[in-house]
Amino acid sequence: MTAPATPGGPGQPVIELRDVRKEFPGGAMAVDGVSLTVGAGTVFGVVGHSGAGKSTLLRLVNGLEEPTSGSVLVDGQDLSALGERGLRPVRREIGMVFQQFNLFRSRTVLGNVLYPLRLAGLDRAAARARAEETLDFVGLSGHGGRYPEQLSGGQRQRVGIARALTTRPKVLLCDEATSALDPQTTGEVLALLRRVNRELGVTILLITHEMEVVRGLCDRVAVMEEGKVVESGEVYEVFARPRHATTAAFVRSALHSAPCTAPRTGRCWSGCGPATRGGWSPCR
């Protein structure tokens, strides 16, 4: 049976998954009947624990994985119907940001950002102008001659975002883009992604295990568990009235708004778990 689609915001659909299943050899069902729609201009978060199927879902959207069944549409085009050659123009509309940045260590910052432009066939002068403009947008003008290892983690992720944006994609896919960063740097990168969405109109699909990221950036959220979307909706409504136990646990991890009741009642209702057998950890 086709799962009900997860509404994706007010804009025209840019990404659509229709009853998508992805089964790996050995029978592991990484994505199990997921239907969701991401509207143009939306920041859509997919949150879940490790192994929930988030990364596979993202790889399905950029065509790195093919669904076992169901269909994935990007900008109205069914990726399954396109061959490798047909996927190339679709992939040019998709930028990708990675947790570990995935920069070329042997290339300068400018060289990293130039790379996709040269692949796309821009001449040297036009590519350089575009790359420098993009570096300026992410706050790294003047850093073009430096190498990734000379940069902080936050700066490296800015280079990663610049590289993803420099071909002016419609969609940005973010794979745990802030998970390797400290809280302050995470805030700076989230603020940059917010600018990418608002000022450039780029639709963002991000996956994360941190509900704080969803709270700080997303318009809509889907919660995944064991390959399925167990809950989805507008971010405030999901935070205010979570219906699924997994969602409620993620919300508690981001709000910390109730006290730890373990010392008095022997059980905490606000979400902290047992630190050790027979004992309770204090709430954060």
Binding site: R215, D219, V235, Y236, F239, A240, L255, H256, S257, A258
Partner: peptide, 11 residues
């Protein structure tokens, strides 16, 4: 514990 989510109070 009351914070903001999408500019609206929650807690």
């Amino acid at each position: 514990g009351v914070g903001e989510v999408r500019g609206r109070p929650l807690g």
